[in-house]
Design a protein around this nucleic acid. Structure first.
Lengths: 155, 155
DNA sequence: ATTTAATTGTTGACAACTAAACAATCTAAT
DNA sequence: ATTAGATTGTTTAGTTGTCAACAATTAAAT
């Protein structure tokens, strides 16, 4: 009698393919943004700040980009060194900075965004907008379940 | 007359949600594997080697896990230091190692896999197997388009 | 008002990734 | 057989991420 190796369930391939797809997307975006000497993460910071004229604290930044706040330090450091972003003192809360897009950051983003949105649309091929909406629903559920799993494990 | 800011297309939210979902999954898996002091990437190496009794070279490993070969060096280093994996000389090609799972690696993987497959199935909630199949198709197309984009940019 | 607790940003140590350059080795072409 | 080209793994340098510990500051509790 031979002991059976555990085998994946019927929906496991979808999980694998999801992870592969997002890796492919991330890689594509890395190549895409390289023209402007931006990393995907750096672009995300600029893009997030672009609809926050009042700026964001680093903690808010890291919360929205789903990363540890210690990571925001270096990211903002490098963007600030290039003059794309600026740390501003906050009188209301002297622990926190307010990070804002500079005029130069704005200018760069305005160059990047049209092409970015264009590429982001084209990558879906002929997928209908209706199917895209269904996808959002399914992926939201997936995210929620994943986060619930984390909570359950961490008690 | 005011210049219009560029705006995203109708399928852009699906792209964002896809990236968020895979990030949530990756984070959940990090927490999940922490019990065995494994990182998701380390698990991926072990899992890939588990159906390759003859072993794989580091380049093959990095190709299948979609990472740069220089990254495989450190990954295999750490796994080897823990005795989960072994570098074997290759007489047919003295440039390349053959990386194989050790008995200890096998044992650890046999402990992890059943729970892993279980969690991977549960994270989908009540999504039907049929929808999962459609998803795979859509995601495959997405991956292909993303890779094509990379090729087009890099000429 | 003072103590206690939570939050903000930084640092240091590390894992995981990329890209470029290098030596060793294999492959192909003539 | 020799040369030219490709491949393998490592190293180095740099970015992106985690986590834990720390000082400064704010918020809450009594």
């Amino acid at each position: 009698m031979i002991t059976q190796r555990p085998s994946p369930g019927p929906r496991y391939p979808a999980l694998l393919q999801l992870l592969r797809a997002s890796e492919a997307l991330w890689n594509a975006s890395r190549v895409f943004f390289a023209r402007w000497e931006l990393s995907p993460s750096q672009f995300n910071v600029l893009n997030l700040l672009s609809d926050q004229p009042a700026g964001l604290s680093q903690v808010e930044l890291s919360r929205q980009l789903i990363m540890h706040r210690s990571n925001a330090t270096g990211l903002v450091d490098r963007l600030e060194a290039r003059g794309l972003v600026k740390r501003t003192e906050n009188d209301a809360d002297r622990r926190a900075y307010v990070v804002v897009l500079t005029r130069e950051g704005r200018r760069l983003l305005d160059q990047v965004l049209p092409r970015y949105y264009d590429a982001a649309e084209k990558v879906w091929g002929n997928l209908t907008a209706t199917r895209a909406k269904d996808l959002v629903t399914e992926l939201e559920r997936l995210s929620a379940n994943a986060k619930r799993t984390v909570k359950r494990i961490s008690d």
